[in-house]
């Protein structure tokens, strides 16, 4: 065998290893109940913001604590504590993915990935207000 071939085989092996390790390292989107099973593991949870319950951010008490309620795909609701400032425009977010650990009574989120339904478009009603 040529040395180049040996190296290429090793490299392909490494390539496969990266893809496999990627699969091993990333989690699946789970529910709050799954996350409760292991409070040490980081989970990704696809959920909806519960807009009927209060979103609490009181910077004068703690500028690094934002609390809200989220409902997962099975309809289970849980309090989520996010130890950063309130994310921009969170009120308008419909779906989001929160990444963090379950702490029993609440879910401690490290990251919130959110996207607004239509980020930058007025409704016709608003538009009329603006032009008149």
């Amino acid at each position: 065998m040529k040395p180049l071939h040996i190296i290429l085989i090793i490299l392909s092996g490494l390539g496969v290893a990266t893809v496999v390790s990627l699969n091993a390292n990333t989690s699946e989107y789970v529910t709050f109940r799954d996350a409760d099973q292991n409070t040490e593991k980081l989970y990704h949870i696809a959920c909806k913001l519960n807009k009927s319950k209060p979103l609490t951010y009181q910077p004068e008490i703690d500028p690094n604590k934002f609390t809200f309620f989220a409902t997962d795909s099975l309809g289970n609701e849980k309090m989520v504590i996010y130890l950063k400032s309130k994310p921009q425009d969170i009120e308008r977010v419909e779906k989001m993915v929160i990444i963090g650990k379950s702490k029993g009574s609440y879910f401690l989120a490290e990251t919130i990935l959110s996207k607004c339904p239509s980020k930058y478009e007025d409704s016709p009603a608003k538009l009329i207000q603006k032009t008149n």
Partner: peptide, 15 residues
């Protein structure tokens, strides 16, 4: 139809 979560920046950085 899988539900794998999207890797975060640190997953990329580590590799």
């Amino acid at each position: 139809g899988s539900k794998t979560a999207v890797p975060q920046a640190k997953d990329y950085n580590n590799i």
